Amino acid sequence: GSLMYASIFGNVSAIIQRLYSGTARYHTQMLRVREFIRFHQIPNPLRQRLEEYFQHAWSYTNGIDMNAVLKGFPECLQADICLHLNRSLLQHCKPFRGATKGCLRALAMKFKTTHAPPGDTLVHAGDLLTALYFISRGSIEILRGDVVVAILGKNDIFGEPLNLYARPGKSNGDVRALTYCDLHKIHRDDLLEVLDMYPEFSDHFWSSLEITFNLRDTNMIPGSPGSTELEGGFSRQRKRKLSFRRRTDKDTEQPGEVSALGPGRAGAGPSSRGRPGGPWGESPSSGPSSPESSEDEGPGRSSSPLRLVPFSSPRPPGEPPGGEPLMEDCEKSSDTCNPLSGAFSGVSNIFSFWGDSRGRQYQELPRCPAPTPSLLNIPLSSPGRRPRGDVESRLDALQRQLNRLETRLSADMATVLQLLQRQMTLVPPAYSAVTTPGPGPTSTSPLLPVSPLPTLTLDSLSQVSQFMACEELPPGAPELPQEGPTRRLSLPGQLGALTSQPLHRHGSDPGS
């Protein structure tokens, strides 16, 4: 009898404990919600809404976190579960008819179910419309201010047509639940991603989709105040780019002037030289400038040598048109050559190039014969006009050509200096018209024969001689050997007369 009593008592207590286990969990969670309300000092109306929603959600799901349970299964099984949970929507909604099984599984994985109690606001006026909503159960109302403009029910759709707008718009009203509602919502990016994977279904979906109420604000059109608020930074940046392009296009129409201050000032006329910023005076940081632009901040801005204009002085008759350009485009679109090309026009420029290279940067340069637009006047290309890779490749080509020119210049200078040193070592320090008596009659020769300089066969020296023939050397430049009979510069000019005159010897006659 005691054994029977113990078994009955144990079973009854276990049954009672299981009955009250759900209630215990409910009270535990309710205590957490109330502690949250007390800690954050939530006001009474919002506090009442929180408690009511918790009670309804507990009775609806029995305190089970559906998302946590669903995430515990593998992905393939999750797709089947989501397809079952959203079967009513996918079967009865017209846009989803005719979709393949794979497309429906992908869509079912992207849908999220939302449960809303009465009085809950789903979308506020001015919120971004980031999702498309399908009503599965219940009814909602749409308000503009305090005026109800629409009441939607089961199988209705609200949001915005995503295929017509590249960016999400703003809501033009509040969406509030009238009863307990079940909503299926899919985010904008998720829907577009699935439709991109199934393009054959995309056309059918957009053609058959009928949005019951379009929440997009109709005033959000390009150029409206609301649109400016939504895309303020983007609009200002776009206007700045367009104004920069218009100014650079105007600059290219004036090829007669070359400016070292950047493309923003290349198009300024002579009357605007004294102004601080020219056409860019209202925004000094709008356009890029070269490193020399920092010198323009000092006094005497109108007389600054940074602004270059072609000189009108005539060229000498024998002067060549100019050196070879550094870039391939210089032959086609440049009416002034790079300062480095002028360094190779003569030997005198070679000796004085490194010492006063900055001073020569603004000297007169030889002109190319074609009066085409200036290379320095070409505006900086924006990322939309020329690819970045093209600019980098041009810079690399320019750097390689500069290296080759520097190597060639160093070799030419070394060769010229070597020839000058050899000339100085071969010439005796001094010569006299009267020579010392020699031991015999073989001493009648006034000077030792001097062998002429070897013929220069280097390509670089031939180019130097060509430049010497075309360029007029300055007075202080050293002379180079030329073709024809060679003669030492330090010898007297009348050596031929010395050989014809008898030598005057000093000596005593033994017979006297």
Score class of each variant (00 low, 15 high):
D127P: 02
L129R: 02
L132Y: 01
R137F: 07
I142F: 01
I142P: 01
R144K: 13
V148T: 09
G153H: 08
K154N: 08
K154S: 09
I157N: 06
L164K: 14
Y165A: 07
Y165T: 09
A166H: 13
N172P: 02
N172R: 10
V175Q: 02
R176G: 02
A177D: 01
A177I: 03
Y180P: 07
K185L: 09
I186A: 02
H187R: 08
H187M: 06
D190S: 03
V194I: 06
D196C: 12
F201E: 14
F201P: 03
S202V: 11
D203T: 13
H204S: 14
F205I: 03
T212S: 07
N214L: 02
L215W: 03
P222Y: 08
G223D: 12
S224T: 12
S224W: 09
G226R: 10
G226W: 10
S227P: 09
E231D: 13
E231A: 12
G233N: 15
F234Q: 11
F234K: 10
R238L: 11
K239V: 11
R245A: 12
R245L: 13
R246W: 13
R246V: 11
R247L: 10
T248D: 07
D249H: 12
K250V: 11
D251F: 13
D251W: 13
D251G: 09
Q254C: 13
L261E: 13
L261Q: 15
G264R: 12
G264W: 12
R265G: 12
A266Y: 09
G269Q: 15
S283E: 12
S283V: 14
P284Y: 12
G287E: 10
P288C: 13
P299Q: 04
S303Q: 08
S304V: 10
P305Q: 14
R307K: 12
R307A: 06
F311R: 14
F311V: 12
S312P: 13
E319H: 15
P321W: 12
L326W: 15
L326H: 14
L326N: 05
M327T: 12
E328K: 10
E331M: 05
E331V: 11
S333T: 04
D335H: 10
S345R: 12
S348V: 03
S348C: 06
I350D: 10
I350V: 09
S352W: 03
S357N: 07
R358N: 15
R360S: 07
Q361I: 08
L365N: 13
C368T: 10
A370I: 15
T372H: 14
P373H: 09
S382T: 05
S382P: 01
R385L: 14
R386I: 13
P387R: 09
V391Y: 05
E392G: 08
D396S: 08
A397R: 09
A397M: 03
Q401K: 03
L402D: 03
L402A: 05
R404G: 08
T407Y: 06
S410H: 10
D412K: 15
D412E: 05
V416T: 01
Q423F: 08
M424V: 13
L426C: 05
L426D: 03
P429D: 12
S432W: 01
S432G: 11
A433E: 15
G440F: 15
T442F: 06
T442H: 13
S443R: 10
S445N: 09
L448C: 02
S451I: 07
P452F: 11
P454I: 04
T455C: 12
L456W: 12
T457F: 11
L458D: 08
D459T: 12
L461D: 13
L461S: 09
Q463L: 10
V464H: 07
V464T: 12
Q466I: 03
M468D: 15
A469R: 11
A469I: 11
E471W: 11
L473P: 05
P475L: 11
A477F: 13
P481Q: 07
L491K: 09
A497E: 10
L498Q: 05
P502E: 10
H504T: 06
H506N: 09
S508C: 05
P510C: 04
G511P: 05
